[in-house]
């Protein structure tokens, strides 16, 4: 056991010293691994966060009932009475056009572009509106209620607030599938790159491998350092990917915080996403290991074959 451990430690030490001797080229390989891991992970993080946001929105069951612009106060109270009688409605409240207009002006105060545009409008373009919370959360029941509300005279439009969120969610789930394909393609690229790098290293150590074989080295003895090399490329590449992602998330959060504010949201990407980071590093190491395993197995077979044919 201690012998085995000793061999593993020696192999790691050997690989690290070889990497130190070729610092620049080792760094380049790690960088390639890092960038390739970073791309799909960032894409995933973005989409994952967006879909969490839309999931949250979809659970809301609010229907907005916009009245015709010229709706009189009589019409409003008639509709009010109708809504009060409807058993499918949990609660509702009215926001008059004046109240809405005031809210808009207040909210846009902090942003010059929007407040300029609002001021240019001159008169209030907003309708009176009821915001209705339905009793049921079933999509069918909601649809039924919406259709019913739509037919009330004086109502311009009955809208689910979350309709756009549903469309976005569909798009996002499509994008998730896309990420899967992109990630798989990049994994193949990494397999080839790491495999090829390890193959080149094996070629430079061909003599050593040949002699080691002749004096009784087992295949695993020969293979171990190269497997560690592949795995370490994955580890360092994965760490680089995590660093790059953290940097990009930080930059992104800085700009997104301004937009989020306008939407009354505190939406931002988490800087420390342990599961994603561990997955990135873990899969990079696994890819490195597999890539070098194939390379070293093929190379050893050809070296042993050479040795026999002479």
């Amino acid at each position: 056991m201690s012998n085995w451990l000793n061999h593993q430690l020696q192999a790691i030490k050997l690989v690290l010293s070889r990497m130190r001797d070729n610092l620049l080229s080792s760094f380049m390989i790690c960088l390639v691994v890092g960038v390739a891991m970073c791309l799909p992970s960032l894409f995933y993080l973005g989409i994952d966060n967006l879909s969490k946001l839309t999931d949250h929105m979809q659970t809301e069951t609010e229907i907005s009932l916009f009245l015709e612009l010229d709706a009189s106060s009589d019409t409003i109270s008639e509709i009010d009475a109708l809504l009060a009688k409807n058993s499918a409605i949990k609660q509702y409240h009215l926001i008059t056009k004046d109240a809405a207009w005031q809210q808009l002006q207040e909210k846009s105060k902090n942003n010059h572009d929007i407040s300029d545009a609002v001021n240019q409008l001159g008169k209030n373009p907003l309708p009176d509106a009821f915001f209705i919370q339905a009793e049921s959360t079933e999509p069918e029941a909601l649809e039924l209620l919406r259709n019913e509300l739509q037919t009330i005279p004086g109502v311009e439009q009955a809208l689910f607030n979350t309709e756009w969120a549903k469309r976005l969610a569909t798009l996002l789930s499509l994008s998730k599938k896309l990420i899967f394909f992109i990630a798989s393609l990049l994994a193949v690229v990494l397999l080839v790159i790491i495999g090829n790098t390890v193959r080149m290293q094996i070629l430079t150590q061909k003599d050593e491998i040949e002699v080691s074989y002749l004096i009784g080295a087992t295949s695993s003895f020969i293979r171990t350092p190269f497997l560690y090399a592949g795995m370490l490329y994955g580890l360092f590449g994965g760490l680089l990917a995590v660093l790059m992602m953290m940097w990009m998330i930080q930059t992104f959060n800085y700009s997104v915080s301004q937009i989020s504010y306008l939407y009354n949201s505190d939406f931002r990407l988490a800087l420390f996403n342990g599961v994603v980071y561990l997955t990135v590093i873990g899969s990079a190491m696994l890819i490195g290991w597999i890539g070098s395993y194939f390379a070293v197995t093929r190379a050893i077979a050809s070296i042993v074959h050479l040795q026999k044919s002479h």
């Binding site: 012998n3 000793n6 020696q10 050593e208 002699v211 080691s212 004096i215 009784g216 080295a217 003895f221």
Partner: peptide, 10 residues
């Protein structure tokens, strides 16, 4: 030292 490494002597 190579054969000793292979034999696990260190």
């Amino acid at each position: 030292i190579l054969p000793l490494r292979i034999n696990g002597v260190s």
